[in-house]
Simulated assay, not measured.
Amino acid sequence: MGITARLAVLPPGRKELELETVDLPEPGPWEVVIEQQAFGICHSQLDLIDNPSRAEPLVIGHESAGVVVATGENVTHVQPGDDVLLTWLPRDPSASRAPGASRIPLRDGRVAVTHNVFAWGTHAVVDEQYVVTAPAGLSPDLTSIIGCAVMTGAGSVLNAAGDVSGRSVAVWGLGGVGLAALSGAHALGASSLIAVDIHDEKLEVARSMGATHVVNARTDDPEAVIRQLTGGPGVDVGFDCTGIGENLARSLGAVRAGVAGRGAGGTLVLVGAPRAPFSFNGMQLLSTSKTLIGALGGLCSPDRDFPVFAEWANRGDLRLDELVTNRYSLSELDEGIQDLRAGRVVGRAVVVL
């Protein structure tokens, strides 16, 4: 095949990425080689960078947009020249074959491994189950975040919360995932949409994307404000995208309670991945008949759901142009990572190639 690529490699025992030149292997029978056009910088990848306890080099990243340049002999749903998206959930969960994880030989004889896919580089070699046909009419720097940020945030609204049309909704935490959840709730007709964060600039973006009310949790008690805005009971549905375990008691407390014999309470969807163990008052959940549900990856089936997100974007309900707030070149990847760490990324950061 003869393709030379530049990949961001995380050496074992280190927290600093190195851009390495590699010679890509021929794709296996079920693999797809993608020339990247843009990829997202997801906060979850910082957790991988910050954990040096690995024995092998790691290639990371899990959302991107690009063009197919080669396929294995068993790949039938895409072909060279196709515009595609890369994601980290299998596109067809009902498939009988379990997808394989990527492995990339390095020039010094080592092999870089992944959990399933990688996206940070000029090219990717991934199992076809992680490759979805890209929607037409949208720029790759915008569609590159569908494979994680949009899938996780908007997907949680689409798949985990039931029908939100005409219901009151609160979204806690307004990074790329939270803003995608807010956009999803707006697209599906939430009657009131309350955005909660500690950064005013993120709250302003949320307002422009359809939030009817915004709450700065640094200066106000969001649970009290939400109860006031809803006339006392709290919201019908909450989405906690913060990844902060101790916030769960507050976001759950802001969901309306049910009454025994009269009906269940509201629902809180746990969207953000907690980075430490947490606890909350289980009696509160039991006595109020509320529902708490986790939604890994927005409970998405990418083949089914990505066209829905594209439809929302094409009609202007999913504001990808406002979700993507920071752009970098590949050589500026480390700058993007540091900006994300320092809270200088309002929505989602992408690298454009």
Rank of each mutant, 00 (worst) to 15 (best):
V215N: 04
G175Q: 15
A134D: 05
L158M: 12
S191T: 15
S139I: 00
V132C: 05
L203T: 08
P140L: 01
T212R: 05
D221K: 01
R207E: 11
P222V: 06
S168V: 07
G166Q: 15
G178Y: 12
L188C: 05
A187R: 09
L203S: 10
G155M: 11
A190R: 06
G178S: 12
G166F: 14
D127W: 07
I194A: 03
V132G: 08
D220H: 04
R207D: 04
V126Y: 06
L158S: 10
L193M: 09
T219R: 05
V132Q: 04
D221C: 01
G176W: 02
G162A: 11
A206W: 09
L174Y: 13
G173I: 15
V177K: 12
H213L: 01
G176Q: 02
L142A: 00
L158Q: 14
L138V: 11
D163V: 13
G189R: 11
A136I: 11
S165E: 15
V196L: 01
A180K: 10
G155P: 04
S168I: 07
V164G: 03
G155L: 12
R227N: 06
S165L: 13
S168A: 11
S168M: 09
V157S: 01
V131P: 10
I198F: 09
V196I: 07
S208R: 03
G147I: 08
Q228S: 11
T212C: 04
A217C: 02
L203I: 07
V225D: 11
Y130V: 14
L174S: 13
L179M: 15
G147W: 09
L158N: 08
T152L: 10
S165Y: 13
G162I: 13
I146W: 03
V164S: 04
G147F: 11
S191A: 14
C148F: 09
T133Q: 06
A211D: 10
N216D: 11
A181T: 10
K202A: 04
E128N: 12
S144E: 00
A170N: 12
E128Q: 15
